[in-house]
Computed example of a mutant assay.
Amino acid sequence: MRGNRANQVQRKRNREATDWLLRNRDPAQPVEEKAHFADWLNDPENCRTYRIAEALMGDARSAIQSDPALRNIRTEPRSRAKPVLSAMLLLACAAASFLALDGPMRLRADAMSNADEMPVLALEDGSIVQMNASSAIAVDFDEKRRTIRLLRGQAFFQVASAPSRPFTVEAGDTRVTALGTAFDVRYGALDTGVTVTEHTVLLESGGASSPSMRVSEGEQATYDRASGKTQIQSVDGVVALAWQRGQLAVENAPLSYVIEEIGRHFSGRIILAGRGLANRRVSGTITVSDTTAALSFVRQALGVKMTRVGPLIVIR
């Protein structure tokens, strides 16, 4: 148990270090935020973790020393500007690689799923989590509470009973506290959806000032982050959880939502090009885990054209 607690503390440091690393790249960072960072950095362990995160982000010297092809390069610059520019370029490339390889998320997350997997995880309290493809979670358990942060994607939770330790899932500014045993949370690009399949959850969306609401078994709540409004509707749990079978069942859903779900199972990127295309409507059951079949369904249903260039697919 002590080892688990130490791991959780370190993972928390990793998340904080990543957060500060990204904040500190903002040239307009407020003075008071810089002061908070200085206080946080006074802790030796925080400082060590931050330096590691800095190195991962793209320390040019570390990149050169770790890559034989770079280490063996010999140059004779004609001016002092060239080595400086070379170092800056290398630093930029390393930073871009860090971001492209999901470096910030890997530092923050305790579990991540790839585009071709939907893993089922057993937590230390006996709860079960199934993650959708391309999803990530961070776990923060202690003696008084159990918190899961859904950093991206979607996950289904079967919660082990422990009344003295509330079980909460956070997705952006949405908090879902289990009052029962089973529910699903989807952290989408524009909204957050919560589907309850057993008992009830307490939903808080939009920050502390927003009223909380109960979502019961057989209901789905959707919080629109742009409008700040939450809608609750009845839903068939089997249909709502079709993603566990690699499917998406939709009725008059916007194409942007459908493409987002297909994209979870695609290792590249799918782009919608053209006015109004995102709001075109789609109905049917789509096998999103099969990208080729899913896009073929969309092409036939809407008459759109698709162009693929390497890992990029453009729909127009």
Rank of each mutant, 00 (worst) to 15 (best):
T285L: 15
I262W: 01
I270R: 00
L248H: 02
Y257D: 12
T291N: 11
E260A: 12
S289D: 15
S256W: 03
P254W: 04
L248S: 05
L248M: 10
V258P: 01
W243K: 03
E251G: 11
A253P: 01
G246E: 06
L272Q: 10
A273L: 09
Q247D: 14
E260I: 10
G274V: 04
A242I: 08
F266A: 03
I262C: 02
L248K: 04
H265V: 03
A273N: 14
A249Y: 06
R275M: 08
S267H: 13
V250T: 06
A278R: 09
R280Q: 14
N252L: 12
D290G: 11
D290N: 15
D290T: 14
L277A: 11
Y257Q: 14
R281S: 12
A253R: 08
R264H: 07
V288D: 04
G274F: 05
L277M: 13
L248N: 02
P254D: 10
A253M: 11
P254I: 05
A240D: 04
I270G: 02
G284T: 13
R269H: 10
V258T: 03
V288F: 07
L277F: 07
Q244D: 06
G268P: 03
R269L: 09
V288C: 08
S283I: 15
T291I: 09
G268C: 08
Q244W: 05
L241Q: 08
V250K: 00
E261A: 10
Y257A: 13
G284W: 14
I259D: 00
S289M: 14
T291V: 14
G268V: 06
R264A: 03
L241H: 09
R264M: 03
G276A: 05
T291C: 11
G268N: 05
G246N: 05
G268Y: 04
A278H: 05
F266W: 06
H265M: 03
R280N: 08
F266V: 01
I262Y: 01
G268E: 03
I262D: 00
L272G: 04
G284I: 15
Q244E: 13
I271Q: 08
